[in-house]
């Protein structure tokens, strides 16, 4: 565990701000893929889970880490796949069916 600095708070606030700006330009048409995409992206908790599952922190930590790795990779892989499956379906009129 590392000390929390003000820089991290800056990172959070600025990222949330950028996120709000970027996402407010996503049309309602794509709101479902947006949700599954952000879901996949927030599967980034995998990064924390990996350390837990792979480091030598004791049996319980390893087990919790294993469950966490399983859940977050389910989200990452499943999330990106379903997002792409949905996005593939959006076609303009006149395009090949």
């Amino acid at each position: 565990m590392s000390g929390i600095s003000f820089i991290e708070l800056y990172v959070f606030v600025l990222a949330a701000f950028v996120g709000y700006q970027v996402i407010s330009r996503v049309p309602p048409l794509l709101h479902t893929p947006l949700m599954s995409a952000t879901n996949a992206i927030s599967g980034i908790s995998l990064v924390g889970s990996l350390v837990l599952a792979g480091a030598d922190y004791g049996t319980l930590a390893t087990w919790l880490g294993f469950i966490a790795v399983t859940s977050s990779s389910l989200n990452v892989i499943g999330g990106f796949l379903i997002t792409d499956r949905m996005l593939r379906m959006f076609k303009r009129s006149g395009s090949k069916r």
Binding site: M1, S2, G3, I4, E8, V11, F12, A15, A16, F17, V18, G19, Y20, V22, I23, S24, H31, L34, M35, T38, N39, I41, S42, I44, S45, V47, G48, V51
Partner: peptide, 25 residues
Amino acid sequence: ATGFVLGNNVLIIAGALDGASGFLL
């Protein structure tokens, strides 16, 4: 918040993006 606990910026950022998106929706 996990990112804050682990001192991991990419977690903070990705979580913030997800949080902002859910909030906006």
